[in-house]
């Protein structure tokens, strides 16, 4: 493999992994508070279409990202109202939200089909972008790629170093106990759900404004579901989410390169296309099969409603 091919594959891998990281980190925090929001796909779709529409009208991609974030939060607020205030079933509400978001985004997006946005130029970080092999791939990237790295460290710090994160984990493990020692369980869960929605919205915005700057119905293409699966198979640990997302991106890009290179191979193309999905899952299952790790990291009250007594 020559050096420029390696660099361009690494570049593409990072780009492909970025939306998954952003969305998964949001879902991770969401689920660590004990709320399972299966509507990621719908929130991403809404974020994508809102970001596209605002960018198209204003010409400013950053307003678009804000709009995507807002749309994701608005949809997640519906979910919060249903499951936290009205105590509806989280699984059913999440599934409904996924279908709703995808459908509504298709409806809103109709006028924008076949419009392309101007590409947003990457941000080059001086000096380190000149590093051989990796410099161009890692440090001449979209701003949201850098944001995903910053969010990764922020989430790690928040969950494991801050008091607020400690309280959030406590709520996810045992809401009844957290309530008994005086923490506002429902409020904390709302904030976690909104954070999950915001991140899913940003992930969607990345897809429609930066990754492929156009709107196509169904362009989220299952990434919301992959992000959900990543969090579970990564046993709710941020570093494993990061590894899983890049692994998925890497295998995805590799198989695309193989398919596009015209290499003569005996595998059917469908097999290659499915490779990223099961390769990621197998790797994460293998590194996370320790029962101890699962018990210590999975939020015990995940998906269970909580109602304060009295």
């Amino acid at each position: 493999m020559d050096a420029s091919l390696f660099t361009s594959m690494l570049f593409a891998t990072v780009v492909a992994g970025t939306p998954l990281i952003i969305v998964s980190l949001g879902l991770l925090v969401n689920e660590k508070a004990g709320v399972l929001n299966l509507g990621a796909e719908g929130m991403m779709a809404m974020g994508a279409v809102a970001a596209f529409a605002v960018t198209h009208h204003s010409g400013n991609p950053w307003l678009g990202v804000l709009a995507g974030m807002g749309a994701g939060m608005a949809v997640s607020l519906i979910f919060g109202l249903l499951t936290l205030t009205l105590q509806a079933n989280q699984v059913a509400s999440g599934l409904a939200l996924a279908i709703f978001g995808v459908g509504l985004s298709a409806f809103i997006g109709k006028p924008f089909e076949s419009i392309a946005l101007p590409a947003v130029p990457p941000i080059r970080i001086p000096f380190i972008a000149d590093l051989p092999l990796i410099g161009e791939a890692l440090y001449n990237q979209q701003a949201l790629v850098y944001l995903s790295w910053a969010m990764f460290w922020a989430v790690v710090w928040f969950l494991y170093r801050s008091r607020a994160g400690l309280i959030l984990r406590a709520v996810g493990e045992s809401p009844a106990s957290a309530h008994a020692i005086g923490h506002p369980v429902i409020l904390i869960r709302y904030l976690a759900v909104l954070f999950g929605g915001a991140m899913a919205g940003i992930g969607g915005a990345f897809l429609s404004v930066f990754y492929t700057p156009m709107w196509v119905e169904g362009m989220v293409a299952g990434r919301g579901w992959i992000a959900l699966a990543l969090v579970v198979f990564a046993t709710w640990r941020p570093l494993r989410v990061l590894v899983g997302a890049y692994l998925f991106g890497g295998v995805m890009i590799t198989q695309l390169f193989i398919q596009g290179s015209g290499m003569q191979i005996d595998f059917p193309a469908q097999f290659l296309s499915s490779l990223p999905y099961w390769a990621t899952i197998i790797v994460l299952v293998v590194i996370s099969r320790n029962v101890n790790t699962i018990r210590l990291n999975s939020p015990m009250s995940l998906g269970k409603p909580f109602r304060a007594e009295g």
Binding site: A170, E173, A176, S177, G182
Partner: peptide, 24 residues
């Protein structure tokens, strides 16, 4: 002190105590 403990099993003792104290 509750009959059914209000402790968080996946956290350490000091984290559990910190959760019940005001401030940081």
């Amino acid at each position: 002190v509750f009959q059914h403990f209000s402790l968080f099993e996946t956290l350490t003792v000091v984290e559990n105590v910190a959760l019940a104290l005001p401030g940081k």
